[in-house]
């Protein structure tokens, strides 16, 4: 990050904003993976329980 970069009213430089956007995107992807993981494991467990109750 260059010291010469212009800061906005809150003190953010374009580089910092770009880094923040990238972090936010990665955090979003990580959250999506986590939600998918919880959903899929729930389906697997439900399927196993249904199969077990039918025996």
């Amino acid at each position: 990050m260059s010291d010469n970069e212009q800061k906005d009213a809150n003190g953010w430089t374009p580089t910092l904003l770009k880094q923040r956007r990238r972090r936010a995107a990665i955090m979003g992807i990580a959250l999506a993976i986590m939600v998918t993981m919880f959903f899929l494991v729930t389906v697997v467990r439900l399927s196993a329980n249904i199969a077990a109750s039918g025996q």
Binding site: L16, Q19, R20, R22, R23, I26
Partner: peptide, 8 residues
């Protein structure tokens, strides 16, 4: 809010 994704 400092640091890139690669840093994390």
């Amino acid at each position: 809010d400092a640091g890139s994704a690669a840093d994390y």
